[in-house]
Write a protein that binds this DNA or RNA. Sequence first.
DNA 1: CTGTTAGCGCCTTCAT
DNA 2: ATGAAGGCGCTAACAG
Lengths: 326, 326
Amino acid sequence: MDVAREAGVSPSTVSRILNGTARVSDDKRQAVLAAIAEMNFAPNQMAQGLKKGRSMTIGIVVQDISSPFFDETLRGVDDGLKGTGYASVIVSGHWNAEEEADRIRLLLARKVDGIILLSGRMSDQTVLNFSTQRPIVSTGRALRTRSALGFKMDNEHGAYLAVHHLIELGHRRIAFISGPSNNIDAIERLAGYTRALAEAGIALDPQLIVEGNYHEASGMLAMNRLFDTHQQFTAVFAANDLSAYGARLALYRKGIRVPDDISLVGFDDLPGSSYTTPPLTTIRQPLYDIGRIATHSLLCIINGGETRGEVPPLELIVRETTRRVR
Amino acid sequence: MDVAREAGVSPSTVSRILNGTARVSDDKRQAVLAAIAEMNFAPNQMAQGLKKGRSMTIGIVVQDISSPFFDETLRGVDDGLKGTGYASVIVSGHWNAEEEADRIRLLLARKVDGIILLSGRMSDQTVLNFSTQRPIVSTGRALRTRSALGFKMDNEHGAYLAVHHLIELGHRRIAFISGPSNNIDAIERLAGYTRALAEAGIALDPQLIVEGNYHEASGMLAMNRLFDTHQQFTAVFAANDLSAYGARLALYRKGIRVPDDISLVGFDDLPGSSYTTPPLTTIRQPLYDIGRIATHSLLCIINGGETRGEVPPLELIVRETTRRVR
DNA sequence: CTGTTAGCGCCTTCAT
DNA sequence: ATGAAGGCGCTAACAG
């Protein structure tokens, strides 16, 4: 490298100073440092990576780059990476197993040192297969091998908490706007809803369950569907906050007051849920913490350390969209 | 490489097939393709990059990875990159000029082929300096050199549109929740507010202007401040949607109806603004398009092509938080 | 303490 | 049409 020439030393010496690999005499060090500053030189990370076999890059697979759900987790990842020298390349799988696998192959070709997979539709086995090439930490899966780790939230329990809260407030006709029926989290949340009802001796009415797709529009549609079929209910549990927002709008359009006429509970506790009108009662997912902990764990695996790290549990956040039934 | 050995050819031949650089006999091609498939080989991008001098990576600098404002733009970037072979490494400057510069240096060391800078506090001159190393496309700046390009929205005009809309509805006492006074966009939006008022012959009342910081909480605080100082007004213009959300909540807490008692206008048209209660009247920024166009332009510059691409203008979206004053 | 050498994986002349 | 050789920028092993 030309810093070496500029400073009148060999490339190795420069390298040694840059990496602190060995002792170097003070005068040469000064000269090199000066040359570096003057040329504002920074080592070519691609060359470094090629040589050392580590790119100092980790890959993140999200499903939707502009969903507050993933973005809050990404914030945790970003903070977790701070000061580690690692950078991240973020790709999106768009909730498509095929695309996820593609993206992971892309990351692998780029020699990322590890991968964080946020949710997704890929089978656990596929994840395990990829994990032979690079360590993978994933959310929404219960994995635990030498090079693959999963963090799974107790969705069933979370949903139970939500519905139980409603029941305690005296509600007995509780509608449920579910997630996509092929989504594992959605299935588990439905199970929690069912259990809470059963436990309270409330018969499950299939008419009160409408399938959504986790987006606002589907929450709105689901709500309208409930009205169109003349269902009677005093509360609604939406499988995620986004669909709760949509349901809220449908209610507003009908002139139905929340929580006075109907109570509403969401799931996720997105940042925006503290500022809806009224603020949304919901089940809090520790999204930021998940991102941080996943990152930390991945770094541990990469550096051959132990993988500890527990994620905080789901938690009911009572705000202002629920009230005792009159 | 071992694919070569496996297929009984030289590495050069494999490379030629991979890159379509030269004609290769069909039998050898088959052999190589088979070997590649069997070993599921993918070329090491770091080695490729080192050799070719292009990393097929672009760097994105956002200010806040979990803000819907940036995320919507990122979605445009992501789509713009689709199918190009480029991946992106996303870093955050956290609205700090020093940190932005740091992040850019990091991207440069990683040999990104170009940089997209979304907003930020760095001076134009600094951007220009960095652009000598790699092309930079930035939002929120009016730049146009061989290797630096900026897209600037007409904030003054946007704010004017918002306030003009309120004036047309008969409002004359219009409060303004501004952005940070050291933010260029904020300053321009204030100018638009001022001009609309002046044009309508309405005296500007400094008491009606409260500084916020673009976040929900500050919108809420600003609103309360207005009430605490007993200001009279029938409409509020918030400098961005997030602070409008906060203002909305403050209004709700006071039992003031929107739009019946007070009208509210935001700025940005975030995805969530269609689902607030009621849906927010706002100035639409073409965030997604900005991301797409910025990406496209950057790729053009990188490949030595011409830089065209116009961004759609700001636009008033009338939803349900504004109404004619009684 | 420091310079020389070799090689990370790939592509690109240059020969053949 | 194809193989051999050299080098992208850097670091680690080996001498000295």
